Computed example of a mutant assay.
Amino acid sequence: MNWIIRSTKIVKYHTNLHEILKPIWEDLNKYNWLLTDLDFISDVELPINFDHDCFILDSKEFEIIYNSEVQIIWGIISAIPKNCKFNVDLLGKLSSEDNKIWQPDQFLISESFLEIVAFDSGYTILKFTDKKLSDKFKNHFGKEVLSLEKFNQKIPYEN
Rank of each mutant, 00 (worst) to 15 (best):
K131F: 08
D51I: 00
W25P: 02
I125A: 02
E149Y: 12
I10D: 14
L38W: 03
T124S: 13
M1C: 04
A118K: 01
S42A: 13
V44R: 09
N29Y: 10
T8E: 10
Q106D: 14
K150C: 07
G75W: 02
T36Y: 02
E149S: 10
I76Q: 04
D53I: 05
D53Y: 13
I72T: 07
F50Y: 14
L17R: 05
I77N: 02
K12Y: 13
T124M: 05
F128Y: 04
L21M: 14
F113C: 07
I20P: 05
S110C: 09
I56T: 07
S96T: 06
L57T: 01
L148Q: 06
I72N: 04
L46T: 06
L133G: 06
V11R: 00
N152A: 11
V88G: 00
S42I: 04
N49E: 12
F40V: 08
H18V: 02
F55W: 04
I64K: 14
D53C: 13
Y157G: 01
D27I: 04
L21T: 12
E144I: 00
V117R: 06
D51S: 09
D130Q: 10
T124F: 01
Y31S: 04
L94N: 07
D27Y: 13
E144D: 13
I76M: 03
A118E: 01
E45R: 06
Q153P: 00
G142Q: 10
V70A: 15
D120W: 10
F62G: 06
F119D: 12
E111Y: 06
G122Y: 06
K12R: 15
I41H: 11
N16V: 01
F50R: 12
K9F: 01
V44M: 09
I76P: 03
Q153T: 10
Q103P: 00
I80T: 02
K127V: 12
L21Q: 10
Q71Y: 11
N29R: 13
S78W: 05
S78E: 10
K60M: 08
F86I: 06
L133K: 12
G122N: 12
H14P: 05
V145R: 04
S68H: 07
E149C: 00
K30Y: 07
W25Q: 14
T124C: 08
I20A: 01
G122C: 11
V145A: 05
F107Y: 15
P104L: 04
S59G: 06
D58V: 00
Q71A: 15
W33T: 06
N2G: 04
F62L: 08
I77Y: 00
N49H: 12
D39R: 15
L28N: 03
F86D: 07
I73N: 11
I116N: 01
E69T: 13
V145T: 13
N16K: 04
D43C: 05
S147Q: 10
V70R: 08
H14Q: 08
N152W: 01
D130I: 09
N159I: 15
I109W: 07
K132C: 00
Y13T: 07
K100A: 14
N99Y: 10
I10K: 11
S68W: 05
I4N: 01
S112V: 13
L21H: 09
K22Q: 13
I48H: 08
N2Q: 02
S110T: 14
D39T: 15
I72Y: 03
H18G: 14
F151R: 07
L17A: 05
D53P: 00
L46Q: 02
G92A: 01
E26I: 10
